[in-house]
């Protein structure tokens, strides 16, 4: 589903991501963890085509992000760490805008908007301008928008930040559902307990370099993910 090969991205002199290779197969929830500034967001933004990278290759369903960006973007959805949406639109206008961009039919969008906005208890607020939304409501709206076109691969940067417990639980279920239907999820998080319970595979990044990756069992063994993570952080120091 997603192949990141030798990805390198530099900002001036600093290597934000250094020769990172990672493969994500259909059906996998892949967690991406690391300290602040480790290179998680840079990697995710490179995958979704926001950042142009220096070296390496990123393939989504066999298509290169570099040479076929639109084909790749049609297959994915992205939720950033901060849901800066179009404040001047109402929630429903934003959802319809996203649906138009992805070519979601009127009937499909109607059904999906109804389904997800009811699940996230956002229906009554859809006519409100996004400017009036709380952070959590914006995050919910960004999630609904991401699910609108039934993407095959969903990339999320800290998706649980700002969500209430019920919405977090709901999101976890939706992520599993996507993978059960043959899709894949690649997301970053600092909440190691969530990663441990939810992810099939996990990758740990530090200073732009991948320091461990694989199935949850391979990475943590009999220890907790938190212990392994802190140990690896210590080793690298």
């Amino acid at each position: 589903m997603l192949k990141i090969e030798h990805l390198t991205k530099t900002y001036g002199e600093k290597k934000a991501v250094d020769d990172l290779t990672l493969h994500i197969a259909p059906g996998e929830i892949y967690g991406f963890i690391g300290h602040n500034g480790a290179g998680k967001t840079t990697t995710l933004k490179s995958v979704v085509g926001i950042l142009q990278f220096d070296d390496g290759e990123i393939l989504i369903n066999g298509k290169s992000v570099r040479t076929a960006p639109l084909d790749c973007k049609r297959d994915i959805a992205y939720i950033p760490d901060n849901p800066d949406l179009y404040d001047y639109m109402s929630g429903i206008k934003y959802l319809n805008f996203i649906a138009d961009i992805f070519g979601v039919s009127a009937a499909d969008r109607k059904e999906r908007i109804r389904k997800y906005s009811e699940l996230f208890e956002l229906t009554s607020d859809l006519a409100q301008p996004i400017a009036a939304y709380s952070h959590g409501m914006k995050q919910k709206l960004a999630i609904i928008a991401a699910w609108l076109h039934s993407p095959k691969l969903i990339i999320m940067d800290e998706p649980f930040v700002g969500l209430d417990p019920k919405a977090s639980h709901l999101l976890k279920g939706m992520m599993r559902e996507v993978c059960d239907e043959g899709g894949a999820i690649f997301f970053s998080t600092h909440v190691l307990e969530v990663a441990e319970k939810l992810c099939d595979k996990v990758a740990i990044i530090k200073g732009g370099r991948l320091i461990r990756s694989g199935t949850m069992e391979d990475v943590k063994g009999d220890d907790s993910l938190e212990e392994v993570f802190l140990e690896l952080e210590g080793e690298s120091c």
Binding site: D100, I101, V104, K110, R114, L126, A127, Q128
Partner: peptide
């Protein structure tokens, strides 16, 4: 007063029209 959302029929727009 808070605007109440009422589901209405929506026509699918082209990308150019949406933008």
């Amino acid at each position: 007063a808070k605007k109440v959302y009422k589901e209405t029929a929506v026509k699918q727009k082209s990308i150019a029209a949406a933008l």
